[in-house]
Amino acid sequence: MNLESIQREMAAAVMQPLTRDENMRERAADGRSMAEIAESFVAPNSRLNAFERLEIYNRQYWYRVLSALAEDFVALRAVLGSRKFASLSVAYLTEHPSRSFTMRNLGSHLPAWLRVHPELTGRRHSLAVDIAKIEWAFVVAFDSAQRAPLTLAEIAALDGSSQLSLQPHIELMELNYPAENLVLDLHQREKRQTSEAGLGSDEEEQPPAKLPRIRRKPTWLAAHRVELSVFYLRLPREAFLMLTALQEGKMLAEAMEAGFADSRIPAARRAAKLQQWFKSWAELGWICARET
């Protein structure tokens, strides 16, 4: 067996989901015996056979990626309970194994993936998807680039055909629930529990958290960073649409048109609203020149 074959075979074995008892499976996805696969390239020692030695890496892989993912989705885990969260994490990571040198990006596909897997979340599906979006947005806002905002000279040169861009750390979200306060509460609750119970509390099975009543309500949210802190800012629907259009590279005039399409804001009040929004975004340094 050459190096390439060993690495392909071993990676497939290591990344194969564990059994319910956290052991390596007896059979590979293609039906082959895992014991035979292990014996084909792993040498036994006096205490462990080839299967058992490979199993150490199989377990280690899952413990590592599952704990890394759980760190980024604390509120989602709390809402679903640790058991449901673990099953969905295994299913997610099986479909979306890491394709990046950094585990920072492990959860990048989770919100979109979760949306099409309601069977894994149960009755709180829509809320779970929103929470996943909010938590992934934190990862993006926490350490993404900060570019220089537009200068007065650059603003003076703008017209309706100008294309702008937003700070890379801004993540725009369209939600079914106003769930950011809930996420913050769940993070704080988890932090308290960890400090009270000490390390290891994360290993105990956690039932789904009891949640305060939260009503479904269309919500538009931006996660962003000011200095070193991450903030969540509610946006009017029109502002959200406008910012999304700008982020997509639409011209300024097109973005404004997209924002006010189907808007209930009376035409007479739109200019004042626009001025207020753009002022606020400029104060936050959100608007940048388009990267060339």
Binding site: L3, Q7, M10, A11, F41, S100, M103
Partner: peptide
């Protein structure tokens, strides 16, 4: 060590077979 194959990362420090081919690579 090795830890990724075909762009998929295990995020583990996996041991190498101690072969001449592995030395060269």
């Amino acid at each position: 060590c090795w830890g990724s194959v075909d762009g998929t990362y295990t995020h583990d420090l996996l041991p190498l077979p101690y072969t001449w081919e592995a030395v060269e690579r």
